[in-house]
Amino acid sequence: MNLSQKKLLISGTSGFIGLRAAELALAQGMKVRGLQHCTDEAKKAQELGFEVILGSITDPAIAQKACQGVDIVLHTADMANESASLERFREVNVGGTVNIAKAAKNAGVKTFVHLSSVMVYGFNYGDRITESGPLSGENNSYCQTKIEAEEAILQLNAPPDFGIIIIRPGDVYGPGSIPWVVQPILLMRQKLFFYVNDGRGVINHLYVDNLIDAIFLAIEKETYGEIFNITDGQETSWKEYFTRLAEIAGVAVPNSLPKEELKVLAQLRYQGQKLFGKKADILPESIDFISRPYAYSIAKAETILGYKPKIHLKEGMQYTQEWLQKTDTIKLI
């Protein structure tokens, strides 16, 4: 499929990945429409010069309106707030995904790309795990509902009329990333960020532009019904990544604590913030996310898509540093 002049709907254009996807799609000559629920973020889209529809992915009427006249849907919107209930996660991550996919199919959209997550493998997976799994919800609402969403929308896959592609990105960083750039830096400034178990294990970092390159390759090759792990393909330790992040932010390199001790401290802080009605900045569950042990395999994407990460960690950190120097990160949380 030639992407030039194709009309692309991006759900979640107010988000870090969605907004960057819109920028790069416009640069490729695509026409872009955004779907987002937050009016405050519409200004960013307007500055890029594309149409935005305001509303929720869980609203059938809004979904139908957004999908009219569209060739491709890139679904990036999801619920990642770990303090939300499982029911709320299911409403957005499963119900919302199915709703927008059904609307796309009814509107004659040809390609639907669902942005899932490597978190479908849980926290205790084997080294170089492939797309065949096994999958594990780990009693975590985000992990579980990402699995459920994949299972639900694959039932709608019906090429050549309507094709589903699932992308499982790793830990996406770059200018604007909240979980892997902004939040850790803010905690480092307060001396509240620690390595887990001396930073052992592997962060499967993925620079945002590399992710979008992979998405466009999957669309061009019309890989319907397929699932792809996407990372930068490097085995970088958590310690190396967060040390680099501290350096570009100009803050002290974090110290290390044992995993179970750090979980206790995170739980105490969470309970204290909840008691005083403050938004939690550290959740006990987040410790599992930053202590995963192994790399995910991207061999399938390399073979079928010809995917090759163009931006490596050193360059990606440089771009992130340049963004940090002109951004008030506190306003992003």
Results as ranks from 00 to 15, higher is better:
1 M>V: 11
4 S>F: 12
8 L>V: 14
12 G>V: 04
14 S>E: 08
17 I>Y: 10
17 I>H: 07
22 A>F: 05
23 E>F: 09
28 Q>E: 15
32 V>N: 06
37 H>D: 12
41 E>F: 13
45 A>R: 01
50 F>K: 05
58 T>G: 04
68 Q>A: 13
70 V>W: 03
74 L>I: 14
76 T>R: 02
77 A>G: 00
77 A>V: 04
84 A>T: 10
87 E>L: 13
88 R>H: 15
90 R>E: 15
92 V>D: 02
99 N>S: 10
102 K>C: 11
103 A>M: 09
105 K>I: 03
105 K>G: 00
106 N>R: 14
110 K>T: 12
112 F>M: 03
113 V>W: 04
114 H>T: 03
116 S>R: 05
119 M>K: 13
122 G>F: 01
124 N>W: 12
126 G>D: 12
131 E>L: 09
132 S>W: 09
132 S>V: 14
134 P>N: 06
139 N>P: 02
143 C>G: 09
145 T>F: 07
145 T>N: 11
146 K>I: 08
148 E>Q: 12
148 E>M: 10
149 A>C: 03
161 D>C: 08
165 I>F: 01
165 I>R: 01
169 P>G: 05
172 V>P: 02
172 V>R: 00
176 G>S: 01
178 I>T: 11
179 P>S: 10
179 P>D: 08
185 I>W: 07
185 I>M: 06
187 L>T: 00
187 L>I: 00
188 M>F: 03
192 L>V: 00
199 G>R: 08
199 G>D: 01
202 V>E: 04
207 Y>R: 09
211 L>P: 07
215 I>C: 09
221 K>R: 14
225 G>Y: 10
228 F>S: 02
238 W>I: 08
239 K>N: 11
241 Y>I: 07
244 R>W: 08
244 R>D: 10
246 A>D: 09
247 E>L: 13
250 G>N: 05
254 P>D: 06
257 L>Y: 08
262 L>Q: 11
263 K>S: 02
264 V>F: 13
272 G>C: 11
282 I>F: 05
285 E>D: 14
286 S>K: 09
286 S>P: 03
286 S>F: 14
288 D>S: 12
289 F>W: 14
289 F>L: 14
290 I>Q: 05
296 Y>K: 12
305 L>Q: 05
307 Y>H: 01
307 Y>K: 06
307 Y>F: 15
308 K>L: 12
310 K>A: 14
310 K>I: 07
314 K>W: 06
325 Q>G: 13
326 K>W: 09
